[in-house]
Computed example of a mutant assay.
Amino acid sequence: MSTPQGPTLRELAVQALSSIERGYDLLAPKFDLTPYRTPDRVLDAVTRALRPLGPFDSGLDVCCGTGAGVSVLRQVCGERVTGVDFSAGMLAVGRSALAGQDGPAAGPAVGWVRADALALPFARAFDVALSLGAFGHFLPRERPALFAQVYASLRPGGRFVFPVGAPPPVGSKAYWSFLGFDGAMRVRNALWRPTFVMYYRTFPLRDVLDDLAGAGFTAGLLPLPELGSRPDGSPRARLVVAGRES
């Protein structure tokens, strides 16, 4: 599950039995050594797809964790990038990793804000918002409120972007892995408090696009060809590009 320097099985178990916030505070120092960090090839593919949509002045990494999305936004934004997360531990790691790198020579200035994504403290402040790998922490009923908060944080003409993977084929190893993980999490949350919301099968693209439209976005899809194709030739991953028109 991780490199030899990553979290031990005991540390992962303690995290899984904590709240989401406390769990990520505990995991933060070793998070980038786990498979949960967004892989570099995904970051590179998102950057290449996002660059032609810019340039942007300001960017927001929603549920930024240790700042993988911040690294993408720094390549496409000219003035400032902000990472927002509710885990103080994850923000501290991200801030430390970029310590001394802010300033004109290193790209846009970077700020870190601790806040709940369901109550973002911004209003028409950003040209682009990005989120990577965080949507499993929100129940489907919370998704409309999340998208509404991002919408309110963007300036007119702003874009909300995030990658989505094609669902694994029924019966594949990934299919059973995701199904088993979600089942185990549902049992855990039925028997243990505080809950730890993290599911892989609660973000179907059709429902997501409907919720984006309900929040006021106009959404489209861009293929991420660097991440490969399915047997039928369709892309394994796409970038959702949702625009705020006014």
Score class of each variant (00 low, 15 high):
Gly136Phe: 07
His137Thr: 06
His137Gly: 14
His137Tyr: 09
Phe138Asp: 13
Pro140Arg: 04
Arg141Asp: 15
Ala145Thr: 15
Ala145Glu: 14
Phe147Lys: 02
Ala148Thr: 14
Val150Thr: 13
Ala152Tyr: 01
Ser153Glu: 06
Ser153Arg: 10
Arg155Met: 05
Pro156Thr: 02
Gly158Gln: 11
Phe160Asp: 12
Val161Thr: 15
Pro163Val: 12
Val164Lys: 04
Gly165Phe: 14
Gly165Leu: 10
Gly165Cys: 08
Ala166Tyr: 04
Ala166Pro: 02
Pro168Thr: 07
Pro168Ala: 00
Val170Asp: 06
Ser172Lys: 10
Lys173Met: 06
Lys173Cys: 03
Lys173Asp: 15
Lys173Pro: 00
Ala174Ser: 14
Tyr175Ser: 02
Ser177Met: 14
Leu179Lys: 14
Leu179His: 12
Gly180Ile: 01
Phe181Pro: 09
Phe181Asn: 08
Asp182Phe: 09
Gly183Ala: 12
Ala184Gly: 11
Ala184His: 05
Ala184Gln: 09
Met185Phe: 07
Arg186Trp: 11
Arg186Leu: 14
Arg186Val: 07
Val187His: 03
Val187Ile: 13
Arg188Asn: 11
Asn189Arg: 10
Ala190His: 13
Ala190Val: 01
Leu191Glu: 10
Trp192Ala: 12
Arg193Cys: 02
Arg193Lys: 15
Pro194Gly: 12
Thr195Ile: 00
Phe196Trp: 06
Val197Asn: 10
Val197Pro: 07
Tyr200Pro: 05
Phe203Asn: 13
Phe203Leu: 12
Pro204Trp: 03
Pro204His: 01
Leu209Pro: 08
Asp211Gly: 02
Asp211Phe: 02
Ala213Gln: 13
Ala215Cys: 10
Ala215Gly: 08
Ala215Trp: 00
Gly216Leu: 08
Gly216Val: 03
Phe217Asp: 08
Thr218Met: 05
Ala219Tyr: 01
Ala219Asn: 06
Gly220His: 11
Leu221Asn: 00
Leu221Thr: 10
Leu221Lys: 11
Leu222Cys: 05
Pro223Cys: 05
Leu224Met: 03
Pro225Thr: 09
Pro225Tyr: 08
Glu226Val: 02
Arg230Asp: 03
Arg230Glu: 04
Arg230Pro: 01
Asp232Gly: 10
Gly233Val: 11
Ser234Met: 11
Pro235Trp: 03
Arg236Cys: 12
Arg238Ala: 04
Leu239Asn: 07
Leu239Thr: 02
Val240Ala: 04
Val241Tyr: 02
Ala242Leu: 07
